[in-house]
Each structure stands twice: as structure tokens, then as C-alpha cells.
Computed example of a mutant assay.
Amino acid sequence: MSTPEGPAPDAPTDEVDLIVAAWRREAPQLDVEPLEVLSRVARLARHLDRLRRGAFSGHGLETWEFDVLAALRRAGAPHELSPGQLLVETLVTSGTMTNRVDRLVGRGFVERRPDPGGDRRSVRVRLTPAGSGVVDAALADLVRAEHAMLAVLGREERRALATLLRRVSAPFEG
């Protein structure tokens, strides 16, 4: 349990505790309590980014490649989406997605197919067997690494943390 003066005596300390203590000393007029949570979230995000890049690089993938392939894989059979749906799934611009799809087509991980319900210009992006194989293998490595990252928490602690983080992040979604 943290106190306004810092972590409880029996709690582990980290770099954020030092940062918060310094701000409390240097700017005592400010309530820097949000730093205790959000600075840790930011630092964990950087660690997670490194962990993910490591898991993906073992399969020759960049993070963005995994994101597009994973969106298609999660879509279910026949593992295809429109470019517009991919934009929503990956939070990038139309021009960026066109470039990404082009590069993934070049690697043989996806293919463009005519949209049966659209006009001649409408396409669907479909995961190929090669793309499915690489994203499945990368996902397995990612999940193993993420389990290891969270091993310091018990199952109930992980569920509680997920619930709390969902409450904070939900207003930014959709």
C-alpha cells in the first residue's frame, strides 16, 4: 500500500518511486499522485514494446506487420477484411494501410481479392497460408513472453489489474 509520502516500507521500489519522491520534494504544491500510476504504465508500455519486437523479430516480422496479420487472423475464416476494416483495427491512415498491404502482398503474407459485394474497385485483403503460419507462430512466442512478464502476479491479481486498466482505457476507445 502506498502512502502520500511514498511506498509502504515492505513494498518493492522502482524508478517511478524515485521520480515521484523528487517531484514531491521539488514541487510540493502539486499533487503528483497520477505519476505513480501513469508513469508506470508508460514505462511498462516501453518494456512491452521491446518484448513484442523481440517476439516478432524471431519470425522476421515488424510490429506493424504482426498487427495487420493478426487483425486478419482474428477475423475468422476466410481471414479477410476490407482495407477500411483494417484501418479501424490498426488505427492507421488510408495511405499507410495501402503501403502496408502492398508490402505484405510482396512478402506473400496477404493477397488482394475482388470484393464480391462491391464494385470493381472494391477489394478484400485475405491472409495467405504463409501469413497465417507466421502470425500464429509469432503469437505463440508473444503469449509466452507476456506470460513471463506477468509471472510476478497471481491469476486474481492479473484479472483485477485488467479490470482497472479497462476502466481507465475504455473512454478512449471507439
Rank of each mutant, 00 (worst) to 15 (best):
L150P: 08
R103K: 14
A71N: 08
D136S: 15
A77F: 01
R120T: 12
G76F: 00
V37K: 07
R124I: 09
A138W: 01
A77M: 03
S57I: 06
G58W: 06
D115T: 09
V92M: 04
L91A: 12
V101G: 02
L142T: 10
A55K: 02
V110H: 01
L150N: 08
R103F: 00
S57F: 06
S39T: 08
A145I: 02
S57R: 15
D102E: 11
L139G: 12
V125E: 00
V110G: 00
V134M: 07
T93S: 15
A145D: 12
V92C: 04
R53G: 08
V143W: 08
G54T: 14
L87E: 09
F56K: 06
D136Q: 13
L69D: 13
A140V: 11
H79E: 04
R126G: 07
V110M: 01
L104P: 06
A130Y: 01
L38M: 14
L35T: 10
G133L: 02
D141K: 00
A77E: 14
H47K: 08
G95L: 07
D136L: 05
V135M: 03
V68E: 04
W64I: 14
R73K: 14
F109Y: 15
V92K: 04
A75W: 01
D115N: 12
V105P: 07
G154S: 11
V125N: 05
S132C: 01
G58V: 09
L127C: 10
A145K: 08
Q85P: 08
F109A: 11
A77N: 14
E89Y: 02
H59M: 05
G60K: 05
E156T: 08
A138E: 07
E80V: 01
L61W: 00
V152P: 06
L86I: 03
A140T: 15
E33G: 14
Q85N: 14
N99I: 05
G54K: 14
S122K: 15
P114W: 05
V92N: 06
R144N: 10
R43D: 10
F109I: 04
P116I: 09
L139D: 11
A42P: 14
R74H: 15
L91S: 13
V32D: 05
D67M: 05
A75P: 06
D102L: 04
